[in-house]
Simulated scan of single mutants.
Amino acid sequence: MLDQAFAALADPTRRAIIAQLADGEATVQDLARPFSISQPAISRHLKVLEEAGLIETRVDGTARPRRLKPEAVAELWDWLGQYRALWEVRFRKLDAVLDDMAREAGTSATKGKEDQ
């Protein structure tokens, strides 16, 4: 599932569609409006997103609104979260090193001025 989801999200048009669907359900016509591509092209993007398990289609009479699948987005978020935590630890360590370097540079600069 993750491989298909990330492959689907590699395309900027599909990422924009996901962003639109984050605001709620939308029809193909609604989703096609901001793009300068045909409705069949949008439908192909939607098919990729649906096959990746990121969106689903709801049947409402003749309308077929699409919506995000929250469990699929949660799975992506969980997977990314483990790496986010790792990078946050690394950035905190880097911040500490940079703070130490700045303090040392400030002390060295002050010593140089006092010696003159």
Score class of each variant (00 low, 15 high):
Met1Gln: 13
Leu2Tyr: 03
Leu2Asn: 03
Asp3Val: 11
Gln4Phe: 10
Ala5Ser: 05
Phe6Val: 02
Ala7Tyr: 13
Ala7Ile: 07
Asp11Gly: 04
Asp11Ala: 08
Pro12Cys: 02
Thr13Lys: 11
Ala16Leu: 02
Ile17Met: 06
Ala19Asn: 02
Ala19Thr: 02
Leu21Gly: 00
Asp23Tyr: 08
Asp23Leu: 15
Gly24Ile: 05
Glu25Ser: 14
Glu25Cys: 06
Thr27Pro: 03
Thr27Ser: 06
Thr27Met: 03
Gln29Thr: 13
Gln29Val: 07
Asp30Thr: 11
Asp30Ile: 14
Ala32Lys: 00
Ala32Ile: 01
Pro34Lys: 02
Phe35Ala: 00
Ser36Asp: 13
Ser36Asn: 06
Ile37Thr: 05
Ser38Ile: 05
Ser38Lys: 11
Ala41Glu: 12
Ile42Pro: 00
Leu46His: 00
Val48Ala: 09
Val48Ile: 10
Glu51Val: 06
Gly53Trp: 01
Ile55Leu: 03
Glu56Ile: 04
Thr57Cys: 14
Val59Phe: 13
Asp60Pro: 02
Asp60Ser: 05
Arg64Ser: 11
Arg66His: 04
Arg66Met: 12
Arg67Phe: 08
Lys69Ser: 12
Lys69Trp: 08
Val73Ile: 15
Val73Cys: 05
Val73Asn: 05
Trp77Gly: 07
Trp77Glu: 13
Asp78Tyr: 11
Leu80Tyr: 06
Leu80Gly: 09
Gly81Glu: 03
Gly81Thr: 04
Gln82Phe: 09
Gln82Ile: 14
Gln82Ala: 11
Tyr83Met: 14
Arg84Ile: 11
Arg84Gly: 09
Ala85Asn: 09
Ala85Tyr: 15
Leu86Arg: 09
Trp87Tyr: 15
Trp87Glu: 14
Val89Arg: 09
Val89Tyr: 07
Phe91Ala: 10
Arg92Leu: 10
Lys93Tyr: 11
Lys93Asp: 11
Leu94Arg: 15
Asp95Pro: 12
Asp95Gly: 07
Asp95Phe: 07
Val97Pro: 08
Leu98Phe: 02
Leu98Thr: 03
Asp100Ser: 05
Asp100Thr: 08
Arg103Ala: 08
Arg103Lys: 13
Glu104Ile: 13
Ser108His: 12
Ala109Ile: 10
Lys111Thr: 13
Lys111Gln: 15
Lys113Thr: 08
Lys113Leu: 14
Lys113Pro: 06
Lys113Ala: 10
Asp115Asn: 13
Asp115Val: 11
Gln116Asn: 11
Gln116Lys: 14
